[in-house]
Structure formats: C-alpha cells, structure tokens
Design a protein around this nucleic acid. Structure first.
Lengths: 339, 339
DNA sequence: CTAGTATGTGAAAGCGCTTTCCCGATCTGG
DNA sequence: CCAGATCGGGAAAGCGCTTTCACATACTAG
C-alpha cells in the first residue's frame, strides 16, 4: 500500500528513458508518436500520478500559493477563499490554506502559521485579515510575492485590497439619518482593528456632516462577534440610553444586536432600525433581512488572486480600493412620527 | 529576492558539513556543543528556514494531511476544519485544505481536487462530505490513510465519522409530535445524499411510531440551502397545504423556511414551529433562535484528525457514530388549542 | 600497550522529478 | 553526394534535504 510508483517505473515499462517520460507528460519537447503512445499506455496501466512535491523541487516552482486565513469559520473569509480558488485556477495555481488557530486572535500563532507557509515555499502568499504586525508583513513581502486582503498595511498599499470602510460607515449612517433618525447608536468593531476604526470614522463623519451631536454614550465596544453585539445592546438598554437606530460594525455583531432587541421586545425595524456591515450571505435570510453595507467578498478573493498572478509574472499587482455600497433590505425604516 | 538560502549556505558559513547541519536541526544524532552553536548562529544570522518540500521528499513524509472540503463557506464544514487543525497540531501535522470548486456540487471537480491532493503525496487524507463516488473513495482508501467525515461510505465504515442522522431526524420530529403537532411538513435535503435520506427516514419513523399518517404532500424537495428552503415553503404555501410545524433537513434550509414564513406573515413559533438540523453557530442568533439537532462539528473534526493519526500509526482508527441531540431554543412551541 | 568499542563527522547516495548536454540519425540544400 | 542544420532521445546533473556508510579520533578494557 505504501510503495508509490515513480517515473522510473513507467520508463522501464514503456522501454524509454525517464527524460522521455517527463517530456511526454509535460509536452516540453516533441516526442515520437509511438513512444508517446507507449508512455501514455504505461501511465494508464500503472495508474501513475506524478509526485507534485518532487516536481516542485525540481522546477523550483510549486504552482501553489499559500493562503493564510484569519478565521475560516467566518463566511466572509470563506467566500474570499472561494474567490481565490476561482481566480487562481485558470493559471493552474492551487491555494494551500492555513487558518489561524482556534479563533483566539493569537498573534503568535498567526506568525507561526505564516512561517510554516513560507517553509513550504509556496510561489506566493495571500493573507486574509489576521493580526500579524505590519512590519512582519512588510518583511515577508520583500521575500515573496504577497497580497493582503481586507486590511491595509502601511507601505504595502499597492499589494493591499480592502473596501472603503470609512465610506461604508458613512453611507450606512447617512442612510439612517436620511430616514429621520437622530439618535443612532454604534456598536464598534474590535479595538485597534483598522477596519473598526475606519467604519467608526465614517459613522462620525456622517453625524458631523448632518450637524448631529456626537454622543459617546451611544457608542459601545464590541469585537465583530455575535456575542459581543448582543452584549453591546444589552449594555445600551441597561444604561437606559435612548436610540432609534443602531449601526453595527459588522453583520455578525448586528445579528447579536437583533437578538438583544428581540429579547427585550423591541421590534425591528418598527422600534429600532439596524444596519450592519459586510453583507454576509446569511444577512439576506435574517428576520427581517438585514440592511447592510455590501462587501463583495468572493470578488475580492478573485481580484486578490489575479493580483498575485500579476505579481508572479513580475507585473504591478494593480490593486484598488473596493467601494462599499449600501444594500437596502428590511431592517431599517423611516422613524415613526410618534417619536 | 528570489534566491533562497539553503542548508549548504549555512554549512559553509558554519564551517561544517551539511550532514552536521541537518543533525543539529533535527536532533537526529549528537553533535559537539561548539559546532552546534556555530550552526545555530549561522541559522540565526542568515535567517535560514529549511525547505519543507525538499525535506518531505527526502524523508518520504510530509507531515501534511490533505483535507478535501465540500463547501468551505458552510460554517458547518469550516468548524470541522478548525477541529481538524486542533486535532492534528499536537502530532506536528498540518492540514492542507482544498475545497470543492464553486459550490456547484460538481462531482468531476471534486474528483479532480482529490487527485491533486493525492499528487501532493500528503501523508493522509480527510474528506469532508463531497459527492465523490463511494467506489472512488474505497480505491483511495486502499492507497493512503483516509478518514471520511459527515458521510457513510459502504465498506469503509471504520474510517467514517458521521452523526446519527436518522436518530436526529427521529428526535426532531418526535419533539414536534410531543408538542401536539400532527401536520408536520418536511423540507428534504439534497436528493441522493445519504444524510438527507437518513434524516427523512427518521422523520418517517417518528410519524409512523406515533400513528400519524404519512402525507407525501407535506414533503418537498430541497438542497440543504437557504434558497431551496425558501422555495420549499413557498411551494407548500402556494399549494395551500395545512401544517403547523416544519422539520427542515438542515439549518440553512430552515433559515430559508423561516424567511418564507415571515414573508407570508406567519409568526414563528406562534403560527408555525420550525426545527432544523446541524446547530450551526448562527442558529443561536436567528429570530427566534432556532431549535435544532446539534452536530458537534468542531469535535467531529478533532475526532477525525485523531483517527487519522491513529491510522498513520498503523492502529485502528476506531471511529464511532456521533449522537445527534436536540437543542431546544425558541422556534418551536406547543400547538395552540384553537387549531 | 594493543585490541575493541564508542563517538562525532564528512562524503556520498538517494528521494522523484526536470532539464541541460550531447550524440546519433535524419533531412536539407548546394 | 557531402557539409550543415534539424530532430529525437538517453545520460547525467541538479533541486534541497536526510541518512547511510565509512573513517578518524578518543576511550575503555584486558
């Protein structure tokens, strides 16, 4: 069960040299028809599958790109992976995924995963999110073709791909303002996360622009998770804050928010309007369907893959800012007159 | 930027042979303290990282196990991957993920992915779901250590890991019956999928046992997706079927079902009770939170990994059936007297 | 003080491929 | 009909590492 058959086996079987077998298999050089047939027959008969590892070593290219994912259990990242596969496939490249361990945001773990990927000598690297320090990423970028998605790394902008987070936060908030809301709460994303900061900045920008007061008490910390979103509204409600709308830093926290409101008997959007950020697939299926900022995660993955391919071909990756559009569904409505 | 440093570079730098460097790095044989220090210093100074590919080739083991995932964008599978990483890590193994392309259930694509994984000569293989034919899997199992998760392959039972789907379907349905429901609809899973068949069998078993009529009109086909769940209820409602409860073959289709009910003004569980299957993470955050059959996906991944490790150590994998317990939340309630 | 045994180390042989190099055979044109 | 170009294919080197083998050198024991 353990003895794999090698190119030598089929060379012997076909009565040719291994060079010829290799040439037939790769089409690197013309080979006489009859020998070609012999080789192919041997391959078929012995069920030969070339060893990709040996091939990679010999060629110096593995046709593999490493993908480091912050959290594979988030559909947002999972969809990017899908897009990456799609983008890579036409060029014959395959992704090799590694996920950060156990959703613990452990920076050290992430760096370790990155090292392991580097040791594997993948031809390039795509990093999705993660908490790896910027400087580390810059160092890696100097060694190997790298694209960073859903994150902005200073000094590496041309190889970074992310949505216009501030614009998204701004649009979400302005939409709520346009519906007549004036007391709009914000459930923040993870502290220190650039995306979180940018989205909050957009929220503040919209408020300011509309001449609405900025009320610290309406902003609560959370971590982009359902639990923390739930805890966030709970806190708001417990503190007795008055608000008619909530802008959550991402969809997952919006789910938590909605459950919190539901538990307290608030109707959505009748009593409180909710807007999220990401447009995860499931957001079209919440009750009510969630109005949110759309992040085209699959497309982003695809674009990232294409950028990496360009990098591999020594061209400029040519990444650009993705727009963050509002997707209007049912979780937000015009404020009631009674208020 | 492209020239990687090799073991030879550091051998030269340290003034020893490559053999010695290798021995220091792997601790395979004792090496004099001073040389050891020299080697380590060189490694540090040149930032040497051994080439895992070359190492794998030389050793004949890559310390990598291939993981073929049916649909990475499903949290159910994504969580298993998490569990697999966790289970593999202590033994120093790493997973190499490959996902089936583009959620199209394309059998051919899946087989291709499997081939690619095999070419990579991973030390073992874990397959999550997929539509790869049983016979193909049996053939692979003869070649390389294999564990199959969330699926039963005839003749490969000891290496398969799946929940008690029929028991789960039975429990879900009996729970609804216990709440007084007699007209319980069933949204089926993908046709031809063993899980779908088993869950349906459990549903029928419960009905039969309770002496309730089996009504074909209350069963509609779907494909384990939100869209198809939505379409399923729409069909039920359009046909004017009378029902007070729905057992959906998985959570995703349950989400669709809930949205359909919501759209038509039915309250959950006031008018219609809904029970799902899987207990995806998000199911605790739907409105109302979904009562469902719990599948411990992360644990399953971990157990699968451990089974594979055992297989790699030439021990029996010792897989077993996972129980499928009911998790009661808020989407089902006792039928109203008025009915 | 010699035979016998550890002990540490380098040279070299792989691991399974690709690719360069080279040579013999065939083909072209003058 | 021969020099020169063309073509197909085998031998062998090499990708970066591990591991066997053999050989000093340094110890023990008799």
């Amino acid at each position: 069960m353990d003895k794999h058959i090698t190119i030598e086996d089929i060379a012997r079987q076909a009565g040719v040299s291994t060079s010829t077998v290799s040439r037939v298999l790769n089409g690197t050089k013309p080979v006489a028809e009859d020998k070609q047939a012999l080789v192919l027959a041997a391959v078929e008969q012995l069920q030969y599958r070339p060893n990709a590892v040996a091939r990679g070593l010999a060629r110096g290219r593995s046709m593999t790109v490493g993908v480091l994912v912050q959290d594979i259990s988030s559909p947002f990242f999972a969809n990017m992976v899908l897009g990456i596969e799609q983008g890579l496939d036409p060029a014959g490249y395959r992704p090799m995924l590694t996920t950060t361990h156990w959703r613990n945001d452990n920076e050290e773990d992430e760096v370790r995963s990155l090292q392991l990927l580097l040791e594997r000598r993948t031809d390039g690297l795509i990093v999705l999110g993660t908490n790896i320090p910027d400087e580390k990423l810059r160092a890696v970028a100097a060694e190997v073709p790298l694209i960073v998605v859903a994150r902005r790394v200073a000094g590496l902008e041309p190889q970074c791909l992310y949505v216009d987070n501030q614009g998204g936060g701004y649009r979400a908030t302005r939409y709520l303002i346009g519906l007549g809301h004036t007391r709009i709460a914000h459930i923040r994303g993870t502290k220190g996360h650039p995306d979180a900061a940018d989205r909050e900045a957009g929220y503040l920008q919209a408020l300011q622009e509309a001449g609405l007061p900025i009320d610290e008490r309406l902003m609560v910390d959370a971590q982009f998770t359902e639990e923390s979103g739930l805890a966030g509204v709970e806190e708001l409600i417990a503190r007795g804050e008055r608000f008619t709308a909530i802008f959550a830093a991402n969809d997952q926290s919006a789910y938590g928010v909605m459950l919190g409101l539901f538990n307290h008997g608030y109707r959505i959007p009748g009593d409180v309007s909710v807007v999220g950020f990401d447009d995860q697939f499931l957001s079209a299926y919440t009750l009510p369907p969630l109005t949110t900022i759309h992040q085209p995660s699959e497309d982003m993955g695809k674009v990232a893959a294409e950028g990496l391919l360009r990098l591999l071909g020594n061209q400029a990756p040519h990444m650009s800012l993705f727009p963050a559009e509002l997707t209007i569904r049912k979780s937000a409505m015009r404020i009631r007159q009674s208020e």
